[in-house]
């Protein structure tokens, strides 16, 4: 969270994370090229580079797509979510090296424009076996380029979170195109069935994680709470809410996070104004509710970001009766101060 835009809001954690990522990429490329040379010394450098970067990009893409559901299933993965955009841009750069060298090797040495050649050298669009798989990869790379170019918060504000998020959900289309690119490309020539099983394992893991998380979220949204006096709804016992953390409840189709800050409970809307992150999965740092995704902060009593920031979320009334927590699902306007509910000892 920063008041002015910087190219990258570097902090110690981000630098540490990026160094690990950089070293991993180098080690992977080195190991891949080393093993390929050992088993197939006739392979050219261009082929080695194309193959090593393609497998690295595919591995990174699977990892990136698994971070979201993993962070929802286990909060220990949240630091990965915090740095996911760096991972995404790295994946794009690796994929761009793969695409660039492929276009140079297969289309750059003729007398036709390489990009024209990409689409015209194979026009077997009616054949599955000989499908122009390179075009599929090209379109996937184009989506990744758009995502990488607009990954900065500047574009989030310019495009608005709704359009930005819609654009970035293009990653799923890009992922599908990448899988088609692989299955109708290299799989048609590399006859070893191990590649099919690796692909099945990768896609299967992602689908399982996302469906599992999605179903769990639907269950949470559909949880029923009994109404008590006035409009208040009983949600849980006081001791169910950990110190400086929250529990999230879906009331009247809205998610509400009930935070315990010292001996007071406060309820705020669960959705962060930055990127719709789940505030209730964050914790209270320096007296502020801190979004687990990108560190945006809000004061628990009024849902306002501390000055000079201007983000605000809705607040709700909370009560404690006989050790049970009750929440009024009717929201107050964003930034409205509420007293919270004092926990009696």
């Amino acid at each position: 969270m920063g008041i002015s835009y910087q190219a990258v809001g570097w902090n110690r954690q981000k630098k540490y994370y990026d160094w690990i990522l950089f070293i991993f990429c180098l080690c992977y490329l080195g190991a891949f090229i080393g093993l390929s040379v050992a088993f197939n010394p006739d392979m050219t450098f261009e082929t080695l580079l194309i193959r090593s970067t393609s497998t690295l990009a595919l591995l990174l893409l699977h990892f990136i797509l698994s971070i979201g559901p993993l962070a929802r299933l286990d909060s220990r993965f949240l630091p990965l979510l915090y740095n996911r955009r760096h991972l995404g841009v790295t994946m794009f750069l690796v994929a761009a090296i793969h695409g660039g060298f492929s276009i140079f090797q297969f289309h750059g040495l003729g007398n036709t424009n390489p990009f024209l050649s990409l689409f015209l050298s194979n026009t077997n669009y009616n054949s599955l076996h000989a499908l122009p798989f390179q075009a599929l990869g090209f379109f996937a790379l184009l989506i990744f380029l758009l995502m990488a170019a607009t990954s900065h918060d500047f574009w989030l504000h310019v495009l608005t979170p709704r359009i930005w998020k819609t654009l970035h959900m293009g990653v799923y289309l890009a992922y599908f195109l990448v899988i088609l690119h692989v299955i109708f490309g290299v799989i048609q020539y590399e006859t070893n069935p191990i590649f099919i099983w690796i692909l099945f394992a990768g896609t299967g893991t992602l689908v399982t994680l996302h469906i599992l998380t999605g179903v769990r979220e639907v269950r949470r949204d559909n949880a029923r709470f009994s109404k008590a006096e006035e409009c208040f709804v009983k949600v849980c016992a006081v001791e169910d809410i950990p110190h400086n953390r929250a529990k999230v409840f879906c009331l009247d189709n809205e998610r509400i996070a009930v935070f315990r800050v010292e001996d007071t409970l406060f309820a705020v809307h669960n959705v962060c104004k930055h990127q719709n992150g789940p505030l209730g999965e964050g914790k209270v740092i320096d007296g502020c509710i801190t979004c687990p995704w990108h560190g945006y902060q809000y004061l628990p009593k009024n849902g306002q970001s501390p000055p000079p920031f201007t983000e605000r979320v809705s607040t709700y009334d909370v009560r404690i009766i006989d050790g049970n927590v009750f929440v009024d699902p009717m929201p107050y306007p964003e930034g409205t101060e509420r007293p919270g509910a004092q926990i009696k000892k």
């Binding site: 599955l128 959900m169 799923y172 992922y175 599908f176 899988i179 088609l180 299955i183 109708f184 799989i187 048609q188 099919i196 692909l199 099945f200 896609t203 299967g204 689908v207 996302h210 469906i211 999605g214 179903v215 979220e217 639907v218």
Partner: peptide, 21 residues
């Protein structure tokens, strides 16, 4: 939307891989 997309991908991805195979 996420759940809908992944439900669709749960059908399309294995179908694509099997077809390719």
């Amino acid at each position: 939307r996420h759940l809908q997309i992944w439900s669709l991908l749960a059908v399309l991805l294995p179908a694509a891989i099997l077809t390719g195979w």
